[in-house]
Structure formats: structure tokens, C-alpha cells
Nucleic acid binder design. Structure first.
Lengths: 197, 197
DNA sequence: GTCTAAAATAAACGATCATTCATTTTTGTC
DNA sequence: GACAAAAATGAATGATCGTTTATTTTAGAC
């Protein structure tokens, strides 16, 4: 039997990316409430119907935007990750890289914050996204095993090693915290004092 | 000139409270997107039009709900505030009181988190709400002056003394952190290690 | 250029949105 | 019980919502 294959027309990656960017921009500016499908389409310069070629529905568009961002973030942060350094140096490096990434991509950070604390957040399995950042979690694990870091609940360690970054990088919450090297170094010192044994 | 006063009919405080509670419940369950005026009205068992007797519009209802919650929270937390204790004891007490309040009023905590990270957050002057908690900020100030607490940017101190509470009290973020006395004590120790000189 | 299948879209769907309006109900003094 | 004024409401407003459908446009193998 001879089967004829005809190449189907390909989806346009740039269009999908434009939809992600439009979603981020609008949700940051006017929130989930006002970010309607038609407005997102207009912002991305496509027809509202086109969105349904790329996504199942509005919810899928928004959740996909979130997951895409988390993937981008984890790649950027783990790009130059060197697990052979001393544990404190690894953590310190991550702090500087995360501040660098967030301050250059504040729109992503804002979107993630808004998404996570909204009911959309419950739609994403926390562990799925968390595993993108597995190497970071493993560092803390090693620190505990080597008796460098306090042996306490992991949620506590995270609350003092990772979450302060998301707080301090939020200019609405910390308008007096300038993201310069000295301030980041100071803040990291507090984080390290918190978790070190 | 004689002026005749007739008592006008009074607004019903219970109805306003019911609208606050309905707003909190629905926004937590289905988000700002789906929490329409008519659904909030139905939840509060009033007519949609009644909402406009008590509030200018939907935005006013939501912002007022937030401010009402923040006021309730600050009163609960500062109720038994004793500024004469040693600074570490004051902070430790506040930690326990805050965890107690949040775990008994998780709905308020959730609403505040979602509100703050949404564009509604920009509608509320941060300083207005912050001043409800002024005594707490003053404690840190005194700690710095008495050379008990590190002399660093106040946003940094807040990021390690207050924000970890909001993280740890969020069961979605910290599902492994049980809110018992031992765990709170441990977490506070890390916070104190971070900020103490 | 022809053909095909999928991308892309304009237009239309019923549903629901926030808000207003005309009317009724309730409150409290006289 | 009568009166006045504000609370309370049911119904209607035009606008916009998310999604679907029927149609047109486009990409790529032949």
C-alpha cells in the first residue's frame, strides 16, 4: 500500500510567542478580569479565533503562558549552574543571577506572582513546575547532609532562602530596595545567617 | 429659622458585612474574573442593585473589602501588643499571634495575597495600610538603634521578619509546614538569626 | 501553476457583564 | 395610623464576554 504524505501547513511559533507576550503584558496592566480574549488577540495582532488554533481555551492560554515563563526562568537561572562550588557560593551565585534575571524581566516576575496567588495557581501541579528548579533544592539538601545548613523543614529553608528574593525584587513591595550589588550582598548575608548551622 | 430633622433610614451594617464576606468567599473560590456583581449579590442574599447603595461600584466593593480586612488584621495583631518587653520577645509574640490569626482566618489571608498581587493592589496607597502596623515597624527601628538588629535597609528586614510568615502560613506554598508551636518556634529562630546583629 | 490541508479570520452565537432606573418596602418620628 | 426619606429591589440597559462556524488565505509538495 502506498501512502501519500502531504506536509501540513506549520503553526507559526512567532504567533504563539506573540500571544504569550500579549497575555503577560495585558494581565500585568489590567489583570485577569479585563484581559479578554479579544483584547489579548488585538494586542498580539491576530484574530480572536486564531487563539483557538493554538490553545484549547482562554484558561489554557493563561496556564500555558505561566508554564512557558517558569521554563524560561529555570533555564536562565540554571544556565551557568556549577554544583562543584562550595554551597554558600552556589547559593550566593543563584541570588545574583535571579536578581539579574528578574530585574531584566520584571513582567514575567509580576505575571507569575499574580498567577500563583489567583485560583489559576491551583490548576498547575506545584511539583511539576518545582522540578524545573530541582538542582537548587538539591543544594539545600546537600547543605543539610554536610551539616552546613540547619536541619529543619524544607518549607522553612525555602521561606528564607528563595522567597525573600521574590519579595525584594518586587518594586511595589520594596520601593526602597535598590537592586545593586551591595544591597543584594547584604540581603544574601541575612538569608545565609538564617539557614546556616 | 426652624429646621426640621427627620431621621433617615439607616444602612444595615450586617448587610455590608455580608457583602464583605461574600466577596472574600467568591474571590477566593473563583477569582476576580468570575466574581461578578450578580454572583456576589446572590452569595450575600441581596439584590445586585443593593450593592450600589453601599458601594460606588464593583471596584469600590473589592477595595473596601481589602481595607476592611487589613484593619481587622492589624487590630487582632496589635490587641495584646506589649512594647515594654525585650525586642526579641515582642517579635516572637507577634509571630505566634500572626500565625494564630491567619490559621483561624485563612480566607482573609488568601484574599489579601490575591488582591495585593493583582492590579487592584496599585489602587491602595501602600503607606495608608502600612500605618495600621506602625508599632511593628517601630520595634525594628528600636532594635536597630539599640544595636540588637542589623542596620540595613528596612525592606530587607521586613523580607526576613514579616514576609516569611505570609509564606509559611500559606498552605498552598508550604504544604509540609504544619502550624504547630514547635515549627513556628523553629521558623522564628531562623528569622531572628537573619536580622540580629 | 495546481492542489491540499491546515492556518487564519470575520462574523455571529447566546450568555453574562456592570450599572441604572422606576418602583416598592422598610424604618422611625410624629 | 400617616408621613417622609432612604433602603431595597426586579427588570432592563447596552456592552462585552468566551467560543463556534463558515469561509478565505496561505504554505509547501508535486
Amino acid at each position: 500500500m502506498i501512502v501519500y504524505f502531504r506536509l501540513m501547513r506549520m503553526k507559526d511559533d512567532e504567533k504563539k510567542e506573540a500571544l504569550f507576550e500579549a497575555t503577560v503584558k495585558l494581565v500585568n496592566e489590567i489583570g485577569f478580569v479585563s484581559s479578554s480574549v479579544s483584547r489579548i488577540a488585538k494586542e498580539a495582532k491576530v484574530s480572536p479565533a486564531t487563539i483557538y488554533v493554538y490553545f484549547e481555551n482562554k484558561e489554557d492560554l493563561i496556564v500555558s503562558t505561566y508554564i512557558d515563563i517558569k521554563l524560561k526562568m529555570s533555564k536562565a537561572i540554571l544556565e551557568n549552574f556549577d554544583p562543584t562550588l562550595p554551597i554558600r557560593d552556589i547559593l550566593r551565585n543563584v541570588w545574583f543571577i535571579m536578581f539579574d534575571y528578574i530585574s531584566n524581566n520584571l513582567k514575567y516576575h509580576k505575571f507569575v506572582e499574580q498567577f500563583s496567588s489567583s485560583p489559576y495557581g491551583t490548576l498547575v501541579e506545584k511539583k511539576v513546575v518545582e522540578q524545573y528548579f530541582d538542582p537548587l533544592i538539591n543544594v539545600l539538601q546537600r547543605g543539610v547532609e554536610q551539616k552546613i545548613i540547619k536541619k529543619v523543614n524544607f518549607d522553612i529553608l525555602s521561606a528564607f532562602m528563595w522567597y525573600p528574593i521574590t519579595i525584594l525584587a518586587n518594586p511595589r513591595l520594596c520601593e526602597n530596595f535598590e537592586l545593586n550589588e551591595e544591597n543584594i550582598e547584604t540581603a544574601f548575608t541575612l538569608a545565609w545567617n538564617a539557614i546556616k548551622l
